[in-house]
Amino acid sequence: MGGLGTPSGPVLACGEVRTRLLPTSDAVDERTAERLLRLRTDERVRLSRHPNRYAVSPGLLTGVDCRPPSVNGASSRVVGTVTARAVLVEGRVLQSSAHFSAPASGPDRRRPWGHYLGRPGCLIPVGRLPARSVAEGFLAGPGPHELDVGSIAESLMARVCRHRILDFDLPLTTVNTSLRWTAVPAVEGEATSVLFTKADDGLRTVALRLPHGTAPAAVAGLCEDLALHDWLLTTVAYALDGLPAGHEDSGLPKVLRSLVDHLLHLWMPRGHVDRTLHAVWEELDEHTGYSRQWNVMGQRIRDQLVLRAVRSRHQPSAWD
């Protein structure tokens, strides 16, 4: 199948990304990352070392035949497979990501499975797809008996987290985030656009309008990158929120150390994003000031460390 909006291609792509700290006391090495993400025996874990260490599991398909989410209760039915994968960044942050794409219409009757298996990651409607309603419904979250892509991502996350080598001795508490995204082709002549919103409980939604021909897998990659950086910002901001200013007698708060040890080096926007989609990140960053905020927070942490180091040098030691 072609890219978004091409004649034979999908008119809609939707997905969800869940992001967590890998539940171990320390980052894991490349070999362990490979063991963790080896979800299928017939396909290798993809490893990349530049610009940062990045491991991607083989894709897993989940067969579905159900109602897609919708805002107006329009009844429709989709059949096919949702594709999911797990990603480990620098052996430290774990993501699970599930997505599907869907064409505007499909056969009026349900076909045998073979028909759907030939197009992995694609949900084919029985009849016409109310694309707009599905896109809006998807971002609002599934109702009862509707397709729940988040639960597919979550079960993959749970599967990786059950691995015996994970000690669950987490260096700091974090916020688990879910990022739901939809992508539709931009109207001819219209620029690409991105609408990012944050809700309670770590839920984020991203509505994208992208150039014709954009591959759904590339969009999923972009959204994993957005989810990772949003999670980093959320986690560091949460850790710094309400952190008392260093008093004369206070030592180094454990949380500052944990941030330096585990998170500050992970900021690498667009590190593994398709070049054609770099503009989306830049547009988002310009509006939200994510990079600026990250730099300021990083600088604040380093300043705190320096101040505390200076103070501890000037404090009389117990031997004086």
């Binding site: 967590r20 700290l21 539940p23 979550e154 079960s155 996350m157 749970a158 987290c161 059950r162 669950f168 987490l170 508490t173 974090t174 916020v175 688990n176």
Partner: peptide, 9 residues
């Protein structure tokens, strides 16, 4: 799975 998920937070 629920407990492991909540352990993060």
């Amino acid at each position: 799975d629920l407990v492991l998920r909540l352990r993060h937070e």
